[in-house]
Simulated scan of single mutants.
Amino acid sequence: MAASKRKRVKRFIAPLGYTAIPVKFSVKHHSPHYLYVKEHKVREDKNPNRPQNCTLFVLNVPPYCTEECLSRLFSTFCSVESVETCERPTLGVKTEASKTKFFEAKTPLGFHVAYVAFTSPAGVQAALSFSAEEPLEISAKEHLVETGIQKWISQYAASIVDPAELKTEVDAFMQAYDQKVAEEEAKAQENDGVPDEEGWVKVTRKGRRPGLPRTEAASLRALEREKRKRAHKELLNFYAWQHRETKREHIAQLRKKFEEDKQKIALMRAQRKFRPY
């Protein structure tokens, strides 16, 4: 009986405007997964890592496929300059890279999209015209991709911070910050009182005469007053019904005073002798 030939992967019909590239996790897997790619052409995108005519937009990227995996897969078409993954398509300038490894951005957990930038436009054309009998392998002996509990263990081990390394980085950051502040203060002192291009002179609060410091006796008296105010406030209207009764008494006193003022005014009008009409 003749040996059965290996079945060829059928060309998958991709959505309109996209090209389907079959991939599989490893040699053991037979059912392919499809990445949908097209050339990234957006005039509003100002990200320098996405050059025109050299960037490929990738959809349906599985969670286990990292930026390193995508760079390795698409390097078969052309040398890859950079790979950027995100949860959904984004526009705008490139976000500032993190200055420390202890607070890196989290990778997307589910299916995500990617932007693959090649060194030349030939990479985009080669990816769009790709047709292979076998899917591209994500995980192989030379580059294993961790999944399952091994991946969780590696992520947990990577999340543990070395206190000595963190302290070294924090000290270096604070030293650079103190040096920057000192340089700014020295520059401000040099320009103090010097008019700018338009003839204006910057006035600061440093020239004001500082207030006289409190003596120890004055500080003790102020502290004693604060204590008396606090104690009086705590004892006054301790309960809610006391607060209500105090308000009622205050309103009653106001009404009583109002009636007394009305009687005084009526008495003054009665005693007025001059009557012009």
Rank of each mutant, 00 (worst) to 15 (best):
E234D: 14
A186D: 04
G207I: 15
K10M: 13
S129E: 12
T147D: 00
F130P: 09
R244F: 13
V9L: 05
V61K: 08
A114D: 00
F238I: 13
E146V: 01
E190N: 09
L212E: 12
V37F: 05
P48C: 11
F274D: 01
L254Q: 15
A140K: 04
F74Q: 07
S98H: 04
P15T: 00
S129G: 06
F102S: 00
V170C: 06
A127D: 09
H250M: 07
F74E: 05
G199V: 08
Y64S: 07
Q271F: 10
V194H: 05
E67M: 02
A252W: 02
N191S: 08
S4C: 06
N237Q: 13
F173C: 09
R43F: 14
P276G: 00
T85Y: 02
L91H: 08
S75T: 11
E185A: 14
K24D: 09
K262S: 06
H40R: 14
R255L: 13
R208F: 14
M268G: 00
E185Y: 07
K99T: 10
R6G: 11
P22M: 02
V181C: 04
Y64W: 04
E226Y: 10
K180W: 05
R228N: 09
A20H: 09
K28Y: 08
S79A: 15
P63C: 06
K229S: 06
H232E: 15
L254V: 07
I21S: 05
F118H: 08
E185K: 12
K5P: 15
R205L: 15
F274E: 01
P210Q: 14
Q263S: 07
E146M: 01
A164Q: 12
N60K: 06
H143E: 06
M1E: 11
P163L: 01
E198S: 10
S4M: 08
E198C: 02
G207F: 12
E67N: 03
Y239H: 11
E190H: 11
L267T: 03
Y18W: 14
P32W: 13
L235T: 06
H243E: 11
V42S: 11
Y34H: 15
E67Y: 03
Y115H: 07
E224V: 03
Q263W: 09
E234A: 15
H243K: 13
E260K: 06
L254H: 06
Y277T: 01
N47V: 04
D171R: 03
E165D: 11
V83R: 06
T90K: 08
L254K: 14
G199Y: 07
G193E: 06
S82I: 02
L235V: 07
Q189R: 12
G211V: 09
S120K: 08
L236H: 11
E87T: 14
E249P: 01
K28I: 11
Q52G: 02
Y18A: 05
T147P: 05
K41P: 01
F102T: 00
S129P: 10
